[in-house]
């Protein structure tokens, strides 16, 4: 005789198909809809949602303004979170370096201009999305593979010692606010 499970699997599927949705407004007034599972990847947003007491009933009527992130970055972030919302939690890493393979989908998503990547990382840092931060940092770290210090200086915009010294001298020579 087979025993029926207490919680049928179909219920889980229903949750996936009818998720609780939240609205987010970017700094340039673009509106995004994001599911509950996806928004949980952002510690900042989820803390905000719980602190505001948003529920399944009132979530869509109370859009969350995010002043520090523009629409372009928010679009990437929403895509990323929706893509990874059912991922298993990563085990805590205990040793350097973090070992993971950057999936091709994410590599494509993050194949953007350096300036855009810079802004995306600042947004990711503000919204506290660890997985996206790991992936972005991996993209930046991979830029350094098989490069000499000279090339690294160009890639990461690192001034030479002479340039740093000159900058320091000019800063100390220039009159201060009272001068």
């Amino acid at each position: 005789m087979s025993v029926e499970p207490e919680v049928p699997i179909v219920q889980v599927e229903e949750v996936r198909e009818n998720p609780v949705l939240y609205k987010i407004i970017s700094s340039d007034n673009h509106v995004f809809t994001i599911s509950e599972h996806a928004v949980k990847l952002s510690k900042t947003l989820w803390d905000l949602i719980t602190n505001l007491g948003l529920t399944a009933e009132n979530a869509l009527d109370n859009p969350i303004p995010v002043e520090n992130v523009n629409g372009k970055n928010m679009e990437t972030i929403v895509q990323f979170c929706e893509r990874h919302k059912y991922d298993e939690e990563e085990p805590e890493y205990t040793n350097y370096i973090r070992e993971f393979v950057l999936p091709e989908w994410d590599r494509q998503l993050l194949s953007i201009d350096n300036e855009e990547l810079f802004q995306l990382i600042l947004a990711t840092n503000y919204l506290d999305i660890q997985k996206l931060m790991d992936y972005c940092c991996r993209v930046i770290g991979d830029m350094a593979k098989d490069k000499t210090p000279e090339e690294l200086r160009i890639i990461y915009g690192i001034p030479t010692d002479a340039e740093d010294d000159a900058l320091e001298r000019s800063a100390s020579d220039s009159p201060g606010p009272s001068g």
């Binding site: 350097y96 370096i97 973090r98 790991d134 940092c137 991996r138 930046i140 770290g141 350094a144 593979k145 490069k147 000499t148 210090p149 000279e150 690294l152 200086r153 990461y156 690192i158 001034p159 030479t160 010692d161 740093d164």
Partner: peptide, 16 residues
């Protein structure tokens, strides 16, 4: 933290 030690080492040579 996402870089291997060889990259970190070479990066450290790039400037003081």
């Amino acid at each position: 933290d996402s870089m291997d030690l060889q990259t970190i080492f070479l990066l450290s040579i790039s400037s003081k």
